[in-house]
């Protein structure tokens, strides 16, 4: 079971992580814990599963792409 995990913007810099994979994660929150080696999760971090906004306790499955990023600032 491979989950693709991505980090963006300030979160990417802070964690020094961009693209990685994790095994055996059942939720987005577990994917964070495994990918970051249990780093503290800032309260404002957003999560997307397969390009859609999601929650940290949402279930993930093999092949899913989970992304973590700070509040957006485009426009």
């Amino acid at each position: 079971m491979t989950i693709h995990v991505k980090f963006f913007a300030s979160l990417k810099d802070k964690l020094n992580l961009e693209d990685t994979t994790v095994e055996q994660a059942n939720t987005a929150g577990q994917a964070w814990d495994i990918a970051t080696d249990n780093a503290d999760r800032p309260s404002n971090v957003l999560v997307a599963i397969n390009l859609e906004y999601a929650q940290f306790d949402d279930t993930i499955k093999a092949g899913d792409e989970v992304a973590f990023f700070p509040p957006v600032t485009g426009g």
Partner: peptide, 14 residues
């Protein structure tokens, strides 16, 4: 559209 984009579209400024 501008409000939705600014609040939800995944862009970040440095």
């Amino acid at each position: 559209l501008i409000e939705e984009l600014k609040h939800r579209a995944p862009f970040w400024k440095k």
